[in-house]
Amino acid sequence: MELSKTVSSLATIRFQDCDPFNHLNNASYINYFMNHREDQLIKAYEIDVYDMARKLGKSWVSNSNQIAYIKPAFLMEKVTIESQLIAFDTSNLKAEMRMYNADKTHLKAVIWCGFTHFDFLKQQKEVHTDEFMSLFKSILNPVEESQFESRVSSLRLHKSPMV
């Protein structure tokens, strides 16, 4: 069975995550992106990062985030969030996630998240297993741009129905 290289989910913007103007608060975007990715890792790839941490003492920790806010997300709006693995090496992953309105006609935000495989018992970086390396090779979905700013510019230029 071929695994999806891009995974998608629908979310509703909630009151507690909004500012006084009924916009999704800037800091809350990261929570929506991370919740999406965690849920999709379980659903699409059967990877539960919290179960791994409990049972093996190993999982991934965030090491960087680069985010661009393009259009606001509003209170009770349904949004589509997509994500994909865009790069990896023996200990690190980089995922791109995009938030759109429900029918994907407007891009609202894009983020690049970096993660390091980590051994919590030893308190040090961990090397990915051969099984993980094989999985990552099969789902890798890189983007043309190697710099975040260039990627954001490219997404903004493609005003076809998504931006």
Rank of each mutant, 00 (worst) to 15 (best):
T6G: 05
T6L: 14
V7P: 01
S8T: 15
S9I: 05
I13V: 09
R14N: 09
F15P: 02
F15L: 06
Q16G: 07
Q16A: 11
P20L: 09
F21V: 05
H23S: 07
H23Q: 13
L24D: 00
L24E: 01
I30Q: 09
I30G: 03
F33Y: 09
H36R: 08
R37Q: 15
R37V: 15
E38C: 12
D39K: 15
I42Q: 13
K43F: 14
Y45L: 05
I47Y: 12
D48E: 14
Y50L: 11
D51S: 12
D51G: 07
D51E: 10
M52N: 12
M52D: 13
M52S: 09
M52E: 10
R54L: 11
L56S: 13
L56P: 03
G57M: 12
G57L: 12
K58H: 08
W60N: 02
N63D: 11
S64W: 13
N65Y: 09
Q66A: 12
Q66I: 06
Q66R: 13
I67V: 12
A68S: 14
Y69C: 03
P72Y: 07
P72F: 08
A73S: 13
V79C: 00
I81C: 00
E82Y: 08
Q84I: 05
L85E: 02
I86E: 01
D89M: 14
K94A: 08
K94C: 12
R98N: 04
M99R: 00
Y100V: 00
N101L: 02
N101W: 04
A102I: 11
D103R: 07
K104G: 03
A109S: 08
V110T: 07
I111C: 04
I111L: 12
G114T: 03
F115C: 02
T116F: 06
Q123V: 07
Q123I: 04
V127S: 09
E131C: 09
F132P: 00
M133H: 05
S134R: 10
L135D: 03
